[in-house]
């Protein structure tokens, strides 16, 4: 037995190609183990299979070969273990911010029949201020509890539920939708939080706030987080570990390989602010440069890298860094 919360074992994913019946390998024999409480940054070029890894962990995409384990149990379907913030934040368009936030507890805590039966009753009782009736209905109690909880979490995610709680997704800005989506999954206290490009389409300031937000929630709930990003800086700043996925790599005999492999896998401090000493160090330059060359320079495949970080500042947390 081991205490790995996520274990991806010899995971290969391939799709039948549209052109010539052959299969196209997207992920090639990926091995990855995550300890509980890690904050993993997944970087790589567009289309290299980052979202595919997330869906393998989620259980919505089965590996062609190999398997994924969560808490030593093989993943065979989408379960409550993971929380998901998809690439194109898919809030429920017919629900307001608050309704989106309480979607989890309501789906979890009440049955479909109960909801269909009691939603109109609760609505009417709300309308006519018949609070006494509301207390009698279990559905309404669960809803009230969830609402109180959701307001707290939405506030913690930098939103104003009093002011914006009644707005529909189309009335929210991109950043607000992203925060709502994160709050929505945090409501369920998942073991693992999967974030697919949570920073895409956000301006510089909002992105920094989102980095802080994810860091704070990770600290508070002690969950395991896997997030995908295009920005090397975000990955190095936030992740306690950074994994670089690339389709451009050389095998032992120096031939270009098929599908994406993990070409860099490094442990870091993580914490949304990088120690300045570390940023100035040669090691940091080496790390970011090698990630950049993997993610940007396609014509120059490199052998799978294996170097360890040794700079002491690389492992300082945000708090230690702030204390200085």
């Amino acid at each position: 037995m081991n205490n790995h919360i996520i274990k991806i074992q010899n995971c290969t994913v391939s799709y039948p190609s549209a052109k010539n019946g052959q299969r196209v390998t997207v992920l090639n024999d990926i091995n990855l183990q995550l300890q509980k409480g890690e904050l993993l940054a997944l970087v790589g070029t567009s289309g290299c299979g980052k979202s595919t890894i997330l869906s393998a962990i989620l259980g919505s995409q089965f590996p062609t070969k190999g398997a994924v384990f969560i808490d030593n149990k093989e993943v065979t379907r989408v379960t409550r273990d993971c929380g998901l913030v998809p690439q194109n934040y898919s809030l429920f368009t017919n629900n307001t911010m608050l309704e989106n936030a309480i979607a989890g507890p309501i789906l979890e805590g009440t049955s479909l029949q109960e909801r269909i039966l009691f939603t109109p009753i609760v609505f009417l009782a709300d309308l006519f201020k018949a609070q006494k009736i509301l207390k009698l209905i279990r559905y309404s109690r669960i809803r009230d509890e969830a609402l109180a909880n959701a307001k707290e979490i939405l506030r913690r995610c930098g939103l104003d539920p009093e002011k914006d709680g009644g707005k529909y997704p189309y009335e929210l800005s991109g950043g607000m939708r992203q925060r709502t989506a994160i709050a929505q999954s945090l409501m369920m206290r998942p073991k693992i939080l999967l974030l697919d490009e949570p920073f895409s389409g956000l301006d510089e300031k909002t992105r920094q706030e989102m980095l802080d937000l994810i860091y704070e929630q990770w600290k508070r709930y002690n969950i395991t987080v896997v997030f995908v990003t295009h920005h090397v800086h975000d990955a190095v700043a936030l992740g306690t570990r950074i994994v670089c996925l690339s389709q451009h790599w050389l095998d032992e005999s120096g031939n270009p390989g098929q599908g994406a492999k993990i070409v860099i896998d490094k442990k870091l401090s993580g914490g949304a602010i990088l120690p300045s000493e570390f940023v100035k160090s040669e090691e940091f330059t080496l790390l970011t440069e090698s990630i950049r060359s993997r993610t940007i320079d396609k014509d120059n495949p490199l052998p799978i890298a294996s170097f360890e970080l040794t700079h002491p500042d690389a492992f300082k947390t945000k708090e230690q860094n702030n204390a200085q």
């Binding site: 869906s55 989620l58 919505s60 379907r77 989408v78 379960t79 409550r80 993971c82 929380g83 998901l84 998809p86 690439q87 194109n88 898919s90 429920f92 368009t93 017919n94 979607a103 989890g104 789906l107 979890e108 479909l112 909801r115 269909i116 929505q184 999954s185 369920m188 998942p190």
Partner: peptide, 29 residues
């Protein structure tokens, strides 16, 4: 209906019928 929304609902604890009702029916009504 976006597949991601269906998976998201399942991570929130939705059963198959709840996906039909909550994610699909209510949104396309």
């Amino acid at each position: 209906v976006k597949k991601d929304q269906i998976y998201k609902a399942q991570t929130l604890g939705a059963t198959e019928m709840e996906v039909v009702w909550h994610v699909v029916y209510r949104q396309i009504f």
